[in-house]
Simulated assay, not measured.
Amino acid sequence: MRNYILIVYDVKEKRVNKILKICRQFLDWVQNSVHVGELTKAVFEKLKVKLTKVTNKEEDSIRISKIRTGKMLRLEILGIHKKQVLDNGII
C-alpha cells in the first residue's frame, strides 16, 4: 500500500541542503522546505532513516503527514508551481 506523504521542515542552515537532497530523492519539491509524493511503506521507512541521520533533534523540526491515498487530498495551487520552475531550469 502506498501513502501520500507531505514533509515540511525547518532546520538549521548548515543542514538545509542535506535535507533537501534527501527529500528530493524520494518526493517532489513543491515549495521551499515542502515535499510531497506517494511512497510505499518500505521506501517511506528508508526516507525516515536517512532524515534521522542528518537531523539534530535539539535544533531541527521535520513534520511528516501521511494520507492513505492521494485521491483523498485536494490540492489547489495559486501562482507558479515549484516543479514547473524546476523543469524550466529557472532554479
Rank of each mutant, 00 (worst) to 15 (best):
I64S: 02
D60V: 10
R15H: 07
D87T: 02
V34K: 04
V36H: 03
S33M: 07
E76K: 15
S33Y: 07
V30A: 01
K41D: 12
H35V: 07
E59S: 14
T40K: 09
V54N: 06
D60C: 04
E58M: 10
K12F: 12
Q25S: 11
Y9V: 01
K12H: 12
S61R: 11
R2A: 05
D87I: 04
T55H: 03
S33H: 08
Y9S: 02
E76P: 00
F44T: 01
E38L: 04
I91F: 11
I19R: 03
G79Y: 04
Q25T: 09
Y9R: 02
L73W: 12
R74N: 13
K82T: 04
L20M: 11
I90A: 10
E58P: 05
R63C: 11
M72G: 14
Q25I: 00
D60F: 10
D87C: 00
G89H: 06
S33C: 09
D28H: 09
I19V: 15
D60Q: 13
K12G: 12
D60S: 10
R15F: 09
K12Q: 15
D10P: 01
V34E: 03
T55G: 04
T69P: 00
L47H: 02
V43R: 12
M1R: 11
E38R: 06
L6T: 13
V11S: 00
I77R: 11
D28S: 10
R74G: 07
D10Q: 07
R2D: 08
L47V: 03
K83Q: 09
E59I: 09
G89A: 05
T69V: 03
R74W: 07
K46V: 08
I7S: 02
L47S: 01
E38F: 00
K21D: 10
G79M: 09
K46M: 11
V49K: 15
C23A: 10
K41F: 02
E76T: 15
W29A: 03
D10V: 08
Q84V: 05
E59W: 13
